[in-house]
Computed example of a mutant assay.
Amino acid sequence: MASLVPTYLLLQLVLVISFFQFNLAARRLADSAESQQPLLFQYHNGALLTGKISINLIWYGKFKPTQRAIISDFITSLSTSTPTTAQPSVATWWKTTDKYYHLVNSKKPSTLVLSMGTQIIDETYSLGKSLSNQQIEELASKGAQKNAINVVLTSDDVAVEGFCMSKCGTHGSLKGASVQGRSYKFAYIWVGNSETKCPGQCAWPFHQPIYGPQSPPLVAPNNDVGLDGMVMNLASLLAGTTTNPFGNGYFQGPKDAPLEAASACPGVYGKGAYPGYAGDLLVDPTTGASYNANGCNGRKFLLPALFDPSTKSCSTLV
């Protein structure tokens, strides 16, 4: 059953420009007045994720093998070593994050190499079908904790604290187990499948929006509104996780509600975007699906604009 938005959020919802924005703790609502403010992105002298990082997937609930393949193909497509002849590509989209590392140290910038890690499947709902934030962290801790980003993905029949009411996903960091007397922090992400709960909020533009300008929904590139929405949200959170993993990296605004690499560009997927319109996108002539990035295994995805710190503007692939 879809969650209802509290009355105190209705005024914000009337003004919303792109439904939900991600911040360190959650993807939150943004109003049109806020979105028109200058983008004053700052580096807060903290660590960025560097080196070889594995992305481990923790699947919680029922997912079809074809659905799991959509997410894993997206993760694999992030690497420039993955052969993708068609452009624009997922790897090209991800290279915008390199600019953050160059700004930290232009003479000898650090590098980040992402790769697909292990996958854990929990189809028995070991913690039930209604999860708290603490339980999401418990699930995230099941993955490897050194040089890793652990991604918790919940199925469309799982309720999560705050899901649909104030967030579509979240990212943060946790203290891992001690290794040779030394403790490490590891990054984690949670994203929920909104298809049966709030697709108008967390899977737009592949579903009619609940509030704001009304326009026909676009055709999802992988023919799965819920999973294509999860890819968009996961992409946003990955960009925020790598450039602001511990709350003191790159962001604008207050630390407890920051705008990050992708959430600083809400609702923008192509050039010419405006409230209610995702932008001028590519369209598959066979399926009619809208997309802006090609991936491995012939995949197509719709990925959010990223804030380019060198131009101080939102950068799109198309």
Rank of each mutant, 00 (worst) to 15 (best):
Val152Asn: 08
Phe163Ala: 15
Gly229Asn: 11
Tyr250Ile: 01
Pro258Ile: 00
Lys271Trp: 07
Asn223Met: 09
Asp284Cys: 13
Lys312Ile: 06
Pro254Ala: 09
Leu9Asp: 04
Lys271Arg: 10
Ser81Ala: 13
Gly61Cys: 08
Asn244His: 00
Leu48Lys: 02
Pro205Leu: 01
Thr311Phe: 08
Cys265Tyr: 04
Leu302Gly: 00
Tyr188Val: 11
Ser54Tyr: 01
Thr124Asp: 15
Gln180Thr: 14
Leu4Pro: 14
Lys175Gly: 11
Cys265Gln: 04
Ile120Pro: 05
Val16Asp: 14
Met1His: 14
Gln180Met: 05
Leu13His: 09
Gln87Val: 11
Glu137His: 15
Thr287Ser: 12
Val179Ala: 15
Met232Phe: 07
Lys167Gln: 12
Leu4Val: 08
Ala69Pro: 04
Val283His: 08
Pro88Glu: 06
Ala86Cys: 10
Val152Phe: 07
Lys146Trp: 09
Pro83Asn: 13
Tyr250Gln: 08
Pro266Gly: 00
Pro216Phe: 02
Thr311Ile: 01
Trp204Val: 01
Leu139Ser: 01
Tyr291Gln: 01
Thr92Glu: 09
Ser130Lys: 15
Gln214Ala: 06
Tyr184Thr: 05
Trp59Pro: 05
Ala144Asp: 15
Met116Glu: 10
Pro213Met: 00
Met165Asp: 11
Trp59Met: 01
Gly176Lys: 02
Leu4Gln: 02
Ala140Phe: 15
Gly226Gln: 02
Pro285Arg: 05
Lys312Arg: 08
Ile189Gln: 03
Ser54Ala: 15
Ala273Glu: 05
Leu57Cys: 06
Lys146Asn: 10
Ser77Glu: 07
Ser130Met: 08
Lys197Phe: 07
Thr92Asn: 01
Ala187Asn: 14
Asp228Cys: 11
Ala33Glu: 09
Val160Arg: 10
Ala69Val: 12
Ser115Asn: 14
Ile53Leu: 11
Tyr211Cys: 00
Ala30Cys: 05
His207Gly: 10
Lys95His: 10
Arg27Gly: 14
Thr243Leu: 08
Ser194Ala: 13
Thr66Trp: 06
Met1Arg: 12
Ile75Cys: 10
Leu103Phe: 07
Tyr211Pro: 00
Tyr291Asp: 00
Ser315Asn: 14
Trp204Glu: 05
Pro275Lys: 07
Tyr211Glu: 13
His207Glu: 09
Phe307Thr: 01
